Simulated assay, not measured.
Amino acid sequence: MTPISRRSAVLGVAALSVSLALTGCTKAATGATPSGSGSGGAAAKLSVVFIPKNLGNPYFDTSDAGGKKAVESLGGTYSEVGPQQASPDGQVQYINTAAQQHVSALVVSANDPKAIGDALNQARKGGTKVVTFDSDTDPQYRDLFINQASPEGLAKVEVDGITKQIGDSGEIAILSASANATNQNAWIDLMKKDLAANHPNVKLVDVVYGNDDDQTSFDKTAALLQTHPNLKGIISPTTVGIAAAGRYLSTSDKKGKVALTGLGTPNQMREYVKNGTVKEFYLWNPADLGALAAYAADALVKGTITGKEGDTFTAGSLGSFKVGANQTVLLGDPFAFNAGNIDQFKF
C-alpha cells in the first residue's frame, strides 16, 4: 500500500508558500472569525486555527499549507499561529487567545501530552472543537487525533531501514525532537523493543534531542560522532533532525560510513540522497495530514461526526475515513523515499 499515491499523492505543496511561518504571527490577532452559538441565526462561518509545534519548521509549513487549502475549499477562514521555539508553554498562550476568539476549531501538534491539556479543555468548554495531529495529547483533552501512521509501522520501517543499511550489526543512535514530544517518545519506545527482540547484534548507544531546531540538531549530530567513534548509524524520526544530520554528515569524513535514516521531506533530503549521504528515508505526505485534520475539524463543527469510534466522514479528494479506537483517525502507511523515486515528489 502506498498512501501518498493512494490518497491524492503530492498536493503540489512545493508551490505552497513557506511564508506561512512568517505570516502566521500577523494572523494571530485577526485571522480567526468567532463561531460560537452566540452569533445567532445561521451557523457562523468555519474558522480553524492551526498551532504547530513551532513556526518556521518546514514540516509544519507543508502540513499547515495542506490545512489552509482544505479550510479555504470548505469556505472557511484559516490561520496559523504558534511559538518560535517548540515548547508547551509557548503553545498555551495561542490556545487561550483562539479560545477567547471562539474559533470553530483548533488543530494542534502537541509539544507535551499533558501540559497544554487544561488550556485545550477550556477552549472546548467554550464550544471550540479540538483536533490534534502529528503529536497527540492525552485523549481527554481533544475530540480527535489525526495520526500520520501507526506508531508500530513507523518504528518498524525506521528500524528495518537502519539495520539493513548497517548489515544488522553495530552501534546506532537516535536523534529525536524534544524530550517530551508524544509521538517521538512512542516511536522510540517501540524501536527499542524491536531492536531488542529482532536485532540482537545492533546496540542503541544513545538517544539525544535536537528540540526540532536546526543548529541544535546539527550540533547534536557532531557530538554523537565524537562521543561514539564506532557509530554505524543514526535514526532521526524528525524532519528537522534528519536534515541537520544529513547536512553535517555530507561534509564530514563520516559520509558513507555512518548511515542515516528517519523521517524527512523530499525537498529537504534530495541533496543528501543524490550525493550519497542518505540511501533511504520515510514519511507520509504532510500536506495530506494537514488537510485531513482540517476536514475532520469541519466534520466535528458541523456535527457530522462526534469523534466516537465508527464515525465516518469524507475528506475531499483524500476519500472516506473512519474514526478508530481512542478517537483516532489514521492517514495511512509510511512511504520510502530513495534515489529511484525522490524526484517524483516536490514537497
Rank of each mutant, 00 (worst) to 15 (best):
Q140N: 06
I342C: 01
K279Y: 00
G82V: 03
Q148N: 05
Y141P: 05
G303K: 06
Q84D: 12
N211M: 02
V157I: 14
M269L: 15
A44C: 07
D118Y: 00
T312R: 09
A15E: 12
N201S: 10
D112P: 01
S176V: 08
A299W: 10
M269D: 14
V49T: 10
S176H: 05
V258K: 01
G340P: 09
N121Q: 14
E152F: 05
I4E: 13
G67P: 11
P200K: 10
V157H: 03
R270D: 09
V205P: 00
Y282E: 12
G262V: 05
M269R: 04
N338K: 10
G117P: 00
L331F: 14
D194W: 07
T128A: 11
F218Q: 12
P139R: 11
I146K: 03
K255E: 08
N96Y: 06
V202H: 00
E80P: 00
A222I: 07
N230V: 13
K69N: 05
K220R: 12
T137V: 15
A15V: 01
D214G: 05
V103I: 03
V258G: 04
T26N: 11
L106Y: 11
G332V: 14
C25N: 10
A149Q: 03
A177W: 01
V301E: 04
C25Q: 05
V108T: 05
L331Q: 14
A149L: 01
G41W: 13
V10P: 00
G40R: 13
Y209T: 12
G117S: 08
A186K: 01
D61E: 13
V81R: 06
D343Y: 08
G76H: 07
S8T: 08
G264Y: 08
Y248N: 05
D134V: 10
R6H: 10
F50I: 12
K274H: 15
G290L: 08
T26G: 11
D219L: 03
N338G: 00
I234E: 10
K308F: 03
P3V: 15
G241R: 02
G153V: 00
L225D: 06
A259K: 13
A21N: 13
K129F: 08
P334F: 15
G210K: 06
L46R: 04
L292C: 02
F313W: 02
A336I: 14
G303H: 14
D136P: 02
T33M: 09
A21W: 03
T62S: 13
H199D: 10
K279W: 05
A186Y: 02
G40Y: 15
E309L: 02
G262Q: 07
A315L: 08
L74I: 02
V208T: 15
P334S: 08
Q122D: 09
V202S: 08
S135P: 03
Q91F: 05
L190Y: 09
K220G: 04
A14F: 07
